[in-house]
Write a protein that binds this DNA or RNA. Sequence first.
DNA 1: TTTTTTGATAAAAACGATATTTCATGCTAT
DNA 2: ATAGCATGAAATATCGTTTTTATCAAAAAA
Lengths: 242, 242
Amino acid sequence: MPVAEPPLYDLATAAKNGGAKTMIEAVFSRLREDILSGRHQPGERLRVEQLRKEFGVGASTIREALSRLMSESLVTTEGQRGFRVSAVSLQDFRDIAEMRKILETIALRSSIEHGDDDWEAGIVAAYHRLSKVEERLADKPDDVASEWGDLNQAFHDALISACGNRWLLNFRKILHDQSNRYLRLSLVDTTAPRNVHAEHEAIFKAVMARKPDEASELVGTHIDRTVGVIAKQFEGRPEAAE
Amino acid sequence: MPVAEPPLYDLATAAKNGGAKTMIEAVFSRLREDILSGRHQPGERLRVEQLRKEFGVGASTIREALSRLMSESLVTTEGQRGFRVSAVSLQDFRDIAEMRKILETIALRSSIEHGDDDWEAGIVAAYHRLSKVEERLADKPDDVASEWGDLNQAFHDALISACGNRWLLNFRKILHDQSNRYLRLSLVDTTAPRNVHAEHEAIFKAVMARKPDEASELVGTHIDRTVGVIAKQFEGRPEAAE
DNA sequence: TTTTTTGATAAAAACGATATTTCATGCTAT
DNA sequence: ATAGCATGAAATATCGTTTTTATCAAAAAA
């Protein structure tokens, strides 16, 4: 009996560690991260046969994982032409940012209106953790960058966690991830701006003071700022192909 | 050579007629319609083996079609426990309606702002067709109900067709289909209210006069009305299970 | 040259079979 | 009587192969 080709890494154990119950979910998560991180470039073809060997799983497992990634518009497919990573464009990012402003604002207003003591406590805790890391950020930027990313996300999640509308939260999450993909593709150092902590502090105070207009305004400008950064990246790069 | 089990209907030819390029797309479309129409009840298990025989295709084809239906939240899955039709609840419908009001309003405002002559022409045409059918609707309701549904959708699509934000349009479409599922499940006769034509006329006029506030208000109340209808349906039916 | 046709190759889609897991049923021990 | 365990049937998830389709390049025709 010939020995099977060794897969590039052990997906089965990685799956259990990641909390995935099935191989499909494990492949899904892994591919998702690879696309969001830019390891798979926009527009790149995702060949089932190739991925099959890479992960050491069957073809239909790969296909099903790719199909599920279509939910978040991270993967597209057309007729008999296989799968590709979703393309990017400046216009697309503008649309994403526009939608984010709308949804993030509404979610925040809803949370401010309905949030209870637990909600406030969660924000305080998340803000505290984030602040601690941001203190260290000035000294050793590369060291805590990854940690900052997680805590930053946790803070923003905490802000809107009292919004009960699941559809709103779902759409917001999709857009948030998409936006992050653009930032990571553009190698934007999201921690670079000096005023990042000041912004968080301002948002934090406005929310705790239950001032919806002020908080919305701050979040809106926060999102607007990213558009300018990405727009610069796209200048001088007319089109991207496979 | 034994003759294969005859499938319940010829999917391959139905696929080509429906414009589907692959079996997966054909199964996808068919299942989608079956769920939206209520032929598959909320919460119902969708057994792969059963569907496989019904459609006369392979198991992975079914699985992939089901996976893609997760994009629109029409199907859910939970590790090793198969697929089921998404459950329904009054709260879910309220969330959907709330989101629809927001997105529909924004899309309409954007269209009114950016719409050109072609956009106006499209609305006029769609409105005209819809009006013609609504005249006949009073006499022979059952006869033209299906046609009215299509034209009604076409009219509302035309209204927002000048909104360039693809994400907005995508989310709106998902919510619109979800909303329709609730209405169809509740056996609501969407053509019943006498004032349906009057509403459309009012929206039409407000849009053509480029009055965004007025048009948004009208669309908002149009959506609000459905919530009342669905809420009645849910009263007296505590929970639904498999 | 430019356009068509043809053939070869690579990839995607679809299938059928196998291995695992879940769930329900009935049995046993306390 | 009931909680817990064992057992088997049903259904899921997964795999490797077969069939179909698209792509590309070279040859033939215009």
